[in-house]
């Protein structure tokens, strides 16, 4: 589904990713772990198409498309979804309007009829119930005045409503208490399925107790330095990132 080859990317002329290789197949859950500054979020942003990130080398193929040639909205319509580490506030725009507009943009691309207000509310209410969210949420302005937990829950709600094929979760666990973490993880787990791939980007192993990955990759200094099964996450928890970095002779972060 997603094939990343020798991906190099820079921000403001400074290279952050120094050749990433990653292959994610439908039905798989991959975790990308790494310390602060290792390039995890840069990878997520590049995949979603954020402006300001220059790809200097390499390729990204998604379902036979050259992903890097597509504008962000086209990626989303083809089924790529990024749950933001820092969801953005959209004052004056309700979650209901935002989600319905997104859903219909994606449905149009897939040749499906647009949903009307009634059908949309039916669908979104059902998803909210599943995530233990209050319906009053729908009328609030997107992310405005939300707590950290509410913002993350809102990302997972979008994931549940938009039903992407490839979901990338960027530090979705940061800022969550244990109860919120469980709810969010349940929401993500409910999305697991044979057609869908999930990439979980995280600093901590904690989230992976709830969303158990098929593969774990350790990112350091803009490279994947180690890949393995879920046991790799637990080893990292025990020994810290220094362990992998030392083993691979990577320079310590200044």
């Amino acid at each position: 589904m997603l094939l990343v080859k020798n991906l190099h990317a820079s921000v403001n002329g400074k290279e952050i990713l120094h050749g990433i290789d990653l292959h994610v197949r439908a039905g798989e859950v991959h975790a990308i772990m790494g310390p602060n500054g290792s390039g995890k979020s840069t990878l997520a942003q590049v995949l979603a198409g954020r402006e300001g990130y220059q790809v200097t080398q390499g390729s990204v193929t998604y379902l036979d498309h050259d992903l890097l040639a597509m504008p962000p909205e086209a990626r989303a319509r083809e089924g790529v979804f990024l749950a933001f580490q820092y969801p953005v506030e959209i004052p004056g725009v309700s979650i209901a309007l935002f989600l319905k507009t997104s859903l219909n943009a994606i449905r149009r691309e897939r040749g499906l009829p647009e949903v009307d207000a009634m059908d949309f509310l039916g669908l979104v209410r059902e998803r909210m119930k599943r995530l233990g969210m209050d319906e009053a949420f729908l009328t609030r302005a997107v992310n405005q005045g939300f707590s950290g937990g509410e913002k993350k829950r809102n990302e997972v709600l979008q994931l549940a409503v938009l039903e992407p094929l490839l979901a990338i979760l960027d530090e979705t666990d940061s800022g969550l208490d244990i109860d919120a973490l469980k709810t969010v993880a349940d929401g993500v787990n409910a999305m697991r399925g044979p057609e869908r791939a999930i990439v979980v980007v995280t600093h901590y192993q904690r989230l992976l107790d709830y969303i158990v990955p098929d593969y774990v990759h350790v990112l350091s200094q803009g490279r994947i330095v180690k890949s393995g099964g879920p046991e790799l996450a637990r080893e990292l928890e025990l020994h810290g990132y220094g362990w992998v970095e030392a083993k691979n002779g990577a320079r310590q972060v200044a």
Binding site: E73, F98, A105
Partner: peptide, 29 residues
């Protein structure tokens, strides 16, 4: 706001509609 535009586009909303949506939100206050 560029961050807000990217956020909307990353949900499949085309750039022009995303701009209108931000304007609408601004007016809606």
């Amino acid at each position: 706001d560029d961050d807000a535009l990217f956020y909307l586009c990353s949900r499949g909303i085309d750039a022009n509609l995303a701009k209108s949506m931000l304007m609408y939100g601004f007016a809606n206050d």
